[in-house]
């Protein structure tokens, strides 16, 4: 129990270090690779929090595919972020975005005190539909993995929409990247030639 908590806090702190690193470095290959490490650490955290399915997905999708796609993107674009000073930036911090982030963070922190204690069994979330899923799914669905039962059966409509979103995204990327596409540079080059 205490061990779980220590792993939990340690993993989240590691995530914070990674996020800070992502913010500070200007080498984009490093940024993408560290974001992969970020996802993998998050997956480890999900295992501690008993979400094995989510951990599996995060490790495969977040750490695998997203990193590969990010590196593929970097074969097209420059590998370094250009230093740029926004209006009112000082000491490497853009103050207006920083103010916005801190204000939002403070508001969220105020809201935390209303949250039930982490791990308490009588939190509202555990007293709505979840007991039905846990107690009735052995009779109604009859498969051991409750997550799969909810995903495919109780909330099948949700997952259908999900699959259609992925389908649409794949088609959109297809439209954007595959085949001969006109670009502004081509037009300019053609204009110059005439």
């Amino acid at each position: 129990m205490i061990g779980d908590l220590l792993i939990n806090v340690g993993a989240v702190s590691l995530l914070a270090i990674f996020a800070f690193w992502i913010l500070r470095t200007r080498y984009l290959v490093g940024v993408v690779v560290v974001s992969g490490a970020f996802s993998l650490t998050a997956a480890a955290l999900f295992v501690v929090l008993d979400a094995v399915d989510v951990a599996f997905t995060e490790a495969a999708v977040g750490a695998g595919i997203a990193t590969v796609l990010g590196l593929a993107t970097l074969t097209f674009v420059p590998h370094f972020e250009k230093p740029h000073r926004f209006k009112g930036a000082a000491l490497g911090i853009s103050w207006f975005p920083a103010l916005l982030a801190v204000a939002t963070g403070l508001l969220l922190t105020l809201a935390v005190s209303d949250l039930p204690r982490f791990g308490s069994a009588d939190a509202p979330i555990h007293n709505h539909v979840a007991p039905h899923y846990i107690n009735e799914s052995p009779n109604e669905i009859g498969i051991p993995n409750i997550v799969t039962a909810i995903l495919a059966s109780y909330r099948g409509y949700d997952t259908l929409g999900e699959v259609i979103v992925i389908f649409t995204a794949a088609l959109a990327v297809l439209v954007l990247l595959v085949g001969r596409t006109r670009s502004r540079r081509d037009k300019q080059r053609k204009g110059r030639r005439q």
Binding site: A51, T57, A66, I125, Y133, I146
Partner: peptide, 18 residues
């Protein structure tokens, strides 16, 4: 553990990568 948030996040991860 409550399986409902797991389901929501499972699908959100895949939509996120899309």
């Amino acid at each position: 553990a409550n399986p409902l948030p797991h389901v929501l996040i499972l699908t959100a991860i895949v939509v996120g990568v899309a």
